[in-house]
Simulated assay, not measured.
Amino acid sequence: MRAVFVDATETLAAIAGQQLKAGDPAVTINRQPAITPPELPGVLGDAEIAIIDHTHLPMDIALACKALKHVVFLGTGPRSYMDVDALAESGVTVHIVKGYGDTAVAECAFSLMWASAKSLAKMDRAMRAGEWQRTDGIQLTGKTLGLIGFGGIAAELARMALGCGMKVIAWNRSPKSRPGVEFDDLDSVLAHSDVLSLHLLLTDETRGMISRQKIAKMKPGVILVNTARGALVNEHAMVEALRSGHIRHAGLDVYAVEPLPKGHLLTTLENVTLSAHSAFRTPEASENLIRSALGHCRRIAATGQ
């Protein structure tokens, strides 16, 4: 059985090369991170396993990859890149990697929260332009952080926020408990949070979940942080709320369209802090990611599943 890492960055390619062991299934590393979907059949050839970091896999392309039986997606959000259910119906199983970057992503969310509260990006831009714009910030100690979704990343963020004197409340689709965290219904969390951080997987049920109606229920002047998936949020409604000040500031690492197009409306708003879907990009998280992905390949080779 053969696998192809179809879109390896130099960093991930180097880690994969270091972690491959004698006796592993053959893994071809394609050091071409900017691959396009039409190139996939040629890159995969007769490989049964595709390791995919961020390349889209439309169904017509998947069907053209005649030997493909498994996709190992490097992360937890494959639905942003492929139709998981349709692939399953055609005999292709999609495997995900959980938990590899919980701390890294939580640290990014934590950083975006503080940068948003202090308007650091706005002042940085102004000073680079030769302007001295002193901006009033928000003291977060004593404020309430609301977590929408509560998995490993949210649990890490809760630990950090509790450590700096914030109150933490949360909503999750299934019952959860955590020392120091108060769980409540979604509308209550929206209404009482000074900062809201999103930690949901993107599914048919969660797509667009943070709607205009949900945004209206948020506490006026709220800070919104999203390191999960851009499509969880109605982007137009979020922009309206940013313009009106109902959302004081947004700290965003993910977007409905990625890469974020040049001149996108979000880049024109002063009360938005942007990062390029890089929350998980740390050496520690990358090593965990590749270790787990190769583990999937070894299991598939050994069991066929």
Rank of each mutant, 00 (worst) to 15 (best):
V6R: 05
A8V: 10
I15L: 08
T28N: 05
I29Y: 06
A34F: 15
P37E: 12
P38N: 05
P41W: 15
P41G: 02
E48R: 07
I49E: 03
L57W: 13
A64D: 11
K66Y: 13
K66E: 14
L68S: 01
V71A: 01
V84P: 03
A88N: 03
Y100V: 07
A104C: 05
A104G: 00
V105R: 00
V105Q: 04
A115Y: 12
A117I: 08
M123G: 05
E131Y: 07
E131K: 05
D136M: 10
G137W: 13
L145I: 06
G149M: 11
R159W: 11
L162D: 01
C164P: 00
G165M: 10
A170N: 03
K176A: 05
P179I: 09
D187P: 04
S188H: 12
A191L: 11
V195T: 03
L198W: 15
I210N: 04
S211W: 15
R212C: 07
Q213D: 11
I215K: 04
K217H: 07
M218N: 01
A228T: 09
R229T: 11
A231L: 15
E235D: 08
H236R: 11
A241Y: 14
R243I: 11
I247M: 09
G251D: 09
P259R: 05
G263R: 07
G263T: 10
L265V: 15
H277I: 13
R281L: 15
A285R: 02
A285I: 12
N288M: 06
L289Y: 05
A293M: 10
A293N: 01
R298D: 04
R299E: 15
T303Q: 06
G304K: 09
Q305V: 15
Q305I: 11
